[in-house]
Design a protein around this nucleic acid. Structure first.
Lengths: 337, 337
DNA sequence: CAGAGTTAGGCGAACGTTCGCTTTCACTGG
DNA sequence: CCAGTGAAAGCGAACGTTCGCCTAACTCTG
């Protein structure tokens, strides 16, 4: 069905190895006239090189594997897209493999190994505590992850979560808020802990330590954010601002605050996290800490490819986050505690 | 670096072909004892079959290519994810290739061909008019697309756009609206034309033909939807309901309506399209026509794999859409025209 | 105990490349 | 005139599999 080098060679009257030299190879010299002849034959026949055969002899598939847990998540899909593009721009294909309830991480990694990917990009935050994923990933193959990998040993790239928490806290403190609550991601997750650390420290440094009743854990979802916000305001109706650990939950928070009859942002300020594309269109437009998903994907892919090319890469790399101020935050009406 | 069949064979004292039989093959009989021995050796050495070598001899990569234009779009990424999972559950890998400004469609298809994918799944609505994509795709390789392909000849699966438009119109008419406007996708796009046809016909059938001033074209984006909505209300401030061709633009529409001081849905009803995950959390929660992206991805992958397996598949397959009524639609305050 | 049948495993070829080495041949300079 | 040089092309082996066919040895059967 496909045309092979032999076919092209036959048509142009040379050996297939010579055809290889002009069509795919990087070695060897051929005269301009035969080169021309071979090129023409290839075009006429519609020759398309066979990457599997090439990969076999070169011992490199020129392909990276992308292991993602849930890329219907906007953040993950942005990452995957950016990574794929960066890989493509350097000539690499991207083989994706998703892990979810039905298929365990080991199997997904194994599949990628079967295809002999040259490296693996991991975007599976929900699996950061899975020791089996860690074991499967630690090996001779280059790997770069955007989340912590259990057991370590895998270069990680991400954003500075502690700074994220601190930025949110400082912004709200700067506006004059004194009773600030927070809706967090799952407590066991690194990202949650780090953000909480930065957030807590900034509050403490301002002499406003965070009481536990103003911390409610949620699960990254709209519903979770909605419920947690109600819970938070039930526990302490006096809070004037809420830091929500992602934009999706922040939407739920906005809805919950609306339902309680609060005027936004006058009665309660909200800071989100992520800066998803639609956050500027919420009512009110959401102030949020921008997490550079795309840049992370690009950078992760770049590092992975560098690593594949034999270079040394840092074990850890943090991209800067940035506060995007919109209209969901303002000064509280009352100044007193 | 990798362990090959020969290594396993050497350790268990058989020929590598015999090892092949027990580890990967489907043909041939080996005694339980040697099978056991080979299995043990493979486990000890950590044997992982080489899909490239297998693909080479079997003349099948057991891989599908996914050609997407922009999967940071929630709809497309849902599709891609579902397709990847469906393919994986039938043992196929998924090689993704994105087309965008920098890389033209032909090149992307060619890359997939180099990897000798067994079939291609296309999700590139923005390229529906690209004749070169059509040409690149028409060939011996099985292809299934979720959008029209220029020049035809490619099995297409999607949802019924005319019904989508009709559902929106009928819902609004049923609520008593008489002056209904619409914010459409780009006019040249099939999906826009089809939705408009269904929408128009339903209005005409109810004796309320759609005047051109109540139709504004936009570009699927928040900003576009926002601007178009303002434009629509400038052109005809009397409209009491708007049908917006996707949820993203509908968010922009909601914002624009807010800005004009209208109370929603009392002063203006809005119907969206897609039913993205967050639409239930907008203010007000959006009534929308649900497009089954995930099911489309699954079905497309299934059809493609069936096709690869040699079965005949329909040239066209439509999945049902469904109106999801939330709170952004209600009866107009005034009944008269 | 010969011959047939069965079973386990080996063997060779092929898939489509790459790559280093060898061969061929024309041309050069001493 | 002939060794030496250099360019152009060919050749063989290898990459890791699969698969059909072959063979050796064992087990029956009469």
């Amino acid at each position: 069905m496909y045309v092979s080098l032999k076919d092209v060679a036959a048509r142009s009257g040379v050996s297939f190895q010579t055809a290889s030299k002009v069509l795919n190879g990087r070695s060897g010299v051929v005269s301009p006239s035969t080169r021309e002849r071979i090129l023409r034959a290839a075009a006429e026949l519609g020759y398309v090189p066979n990457a599997m055969a090439r990969g076999l002899v070169r011992q490199a598939s020129v392909t990276v594997g992308v292991l993602a847990d849930d890329f219907s998540d906007l953040a993950v899909s942005q990452f995957v897209l950016a990574a794929q593009r960066a890989a493509a721009s350097r000539g690499h294909g991207a083989l994706i493999s998703s892990v979810h309830a039905d298929v365990d991480a080991e199997l997904a990694v194994r599949k990628l190994l079967e295809y002999r990917v040259d490296g693996i990009l991991v975007a599976a935050p929900s699996l950061e505590d899975d020791p089996r994923l860690g074991d499967a990933l630690r090996g001779p193959l280059p790997v770069v992850s955007i989340n912590r990998i259990h057991g370590g040993g895998v270069p990680t790239i991400g954003s500075d979560h502690a700074v994220t928490g601190a930025l949110a806290a400082e912004h709200l403190l700067g506006l004059g808020h004194r009773r600030i609550g927070t809706v967090t991601g799952p407590r066991r997750r690194q990202v949650t802990q780090r953000r909480m650390r930065g957030f807590r420290e900034a509050l403490r440094a301002a002499g406003r330590p965070l009481p536990e009743r103003r911390v409610v854990e949620a699960d990254w979802t709209y519903d979770g954010g909605w419920a947690a916000t109600h819970q938070l305001l039930d526990a302490d109706p006096t809070v004037t601002a809420v830091f929500v650990h992602n934009d999706v939950m922040a939407m739920g928070a906005l809805k919950a605050l609306h339902e309680r009859g609060l005027r936004l942002p006058a009665d309660c300020s909200v800071v989100g996290c992520d800066d998803l594309s639609f956050t500027g269109y919420l009512v009110p437009p959401l102030t949020t800490v921008r997490i550079p998903f795309q840049e992370t994907g690009e950078r992760a892919a770049t590092l992975l490819l560098d690593r594949i090319a034999g270079q040394d890469i840092p074990a850890r790399d943090l991209l800067p986050v940035e506060l995007v101020v919109r209209e969901s935050t303002t000064s509280p009406k009352d100044g007193e505690e």
